[in-house]
Design a protein around this nucleic acid. Structure first.
Lengths: 144, 144
DNA sequence: TTGGGTGCAAACTATTTGCATTCGA
DNA sequence: TCGAATGCAAATAGTTTGCACCCAA
């Protein structure tokens, strides 16, 4: 089971375990992500990182988030065509997405078991399952 | 059950049923979408529409696809941060997404029943459920 | 006539890339 | 020292917007 927050030392060893060399900027970025279970956009990560003492460029934030996702350190959540969210929780789980507020919430996998996957298309292997339950705020739901 | 393709007259009455006034450009766009069950990006719709006799501007294609989705005529499928796919099949179903080829495939709802939804967050109402099974091509899966 | 629909181009935003510089083993 | 990592600015791509024009009711 994952736990939060992770201190800098834990972040470093987690990165090593995923074959990512723990440079200062990368540790700064990962520390923000692993402060708690949450869902942050690249832009949010950028401003949170630079709130502290650190100074990391936009390009490095984007490149680093992409690297983390490719290496399996974090997970990309694609629910909104206008931006990607990054999720430090990598154990399988699903998401509620409030389309009115743009808020993501976790759904633990065990409260919603999918059971068996259907047969995959020929010559393919599974790479991940995303379940997104889109919700609207009760008040906003009436409008169009 | 939906059937494909829809002829122009069927497209017009479907549009009326969804409270969309069937102008020529909108009918042209809808005819492309409802030619068969498929998943098209805005760009693909634009070029398919303008392959024929019709000439529809890019802005109109984007505005119209957004309108169709808002009115429930078609469904937006968000699986790739770089573009939105539009799906003429609105009966509930899920998707395989091949991340290597960028291809979407339908999964009928009945081969993968989710059962009960988990309790929604307070003050929200369900707006839709998306299940995306990401797959990789068998050959490409080895690479990194 | 008048408001919705359309077209064009410019604007916008998230993200990526090229390249020179700097860092760390 | 030498390749990897970083930063900056410019480029890119998908999508949206402002605004003038046009057409059907």
């Amino acid at each position: 089971m994952q736990h939060f927050p992770l201190d800098e030392e834990q972040v470093r060893s987690l990165m090593r375990a995923h074959h990512i060399s723990p440079t200062q900027q990368r540790v700064d970025i990962a520390s923000v992500l692993f402060a708690r279970p949450q869902h942050l956009s690249a832009e949010q990560v950028l401003s949170l990182v630079n709130d502290g003492a650190a100074s990391v460029s936009k390009a490095t934030v984007y490149n680093t988030l992409g690297l983390f996702a490719r290496k399996g350190l974090i997970r990309e959540v694609i629910v909104d065509p206008t931006k990607v969210f990054y999720d430090p929780t990598i154990i399988p789980h699903h998401h509620f997405y409030n389309v009115d507020s743009g808020t993501l919430m976790d759904i633990p996998a065990d409260v919603m078991d999918l059971g068996q996957l259907p047969p995959l298309p020929p010559n393919t292997v599974a790479a991940g399952v995303d379940v997104i339950i889109r919700v609207r705020s009760a008040e906003a739901a009436g409008e169009k």
